[in-house]
Design a protein around this nucleic acid. Structure first.
Lengths: 94, 94
DNA sequence: GAAATATATTCGAATATGCTTATATCAAGG
DNA sequence: CCTTGATATAAGCATATTCGAATATATTTC
């Protein structure tokens, strides 16, 4: 199996509680930064930093709408699939 | 969507080139630490540390065979599924 | 064009990760 | 029990992440 270094970038991007919540929210539908501030216990600057990391990993992208940036998951099958796998495969007993 | 903190532990465990290679190798079949040393450009101590992290995340487990520990992926559907999703969902163009 | 709103970037301190070297544990054979 | 082979753990250092505070940029409105 060939392992692309991109994969590590994606996994690292998702391996953070706030970022995982961000993508879970974005899977439900496009959101701008301000509306994410209402959903998450994090500051504007911090959310923006996390979005930058997700953007670099090519996990999210945005469309500009006036002064707002409407973020969305640009690989929904990947991200949705990952979350589904995690949900359906809990840690084994002891 | 409820996000378990376990998920972040799993993602963090996999978000490292060496550890990702380790699980990819283990998906092909059980291996002991010594034989992994032949496959990976990492020291014994380092491989053992990575295996400890994967163990904590409940991604791998082992059976003791004499002095050897035979490691295997204890959630093959999860790990195999993740690798498959990554392979099938490359980064979108620009 | 000044003010207000939305978002991004920079910087620094705290904390976490990763790796090396050295040492410990532990099982098997003699 | 002493050695050897297999694996784990600990200590220490270098580097990377994280997050808050402050500041910058861009867009709309008046």
């Amino acid at each position: 199996m060939v392992i692309e270094k991109d994969w590590v970038v994606v996994l690292k991007a998702l391996a953070h509680p706030t970022r995982l919540r961000i993508v879970a929210e974005l899977l439900q539908g496009t959101k701008c930064v301000t509306s994410m501030q209402d959903l998450l216990p994090a500051s504007q600057a911090n959310i923006s930093q996390h979005l930058g990391i997700l953007r670099n990993a090519r996990v999210v992208d945005f469309t500009q709408d006036g002064a707002q940036r409407c973020y969305y998951v640009c690989r929904p099958e990947l991200v949705g699939g990952l979350l589904e796998l995690l949900r359906d495969n809990p840690a084994p007993p002891a």
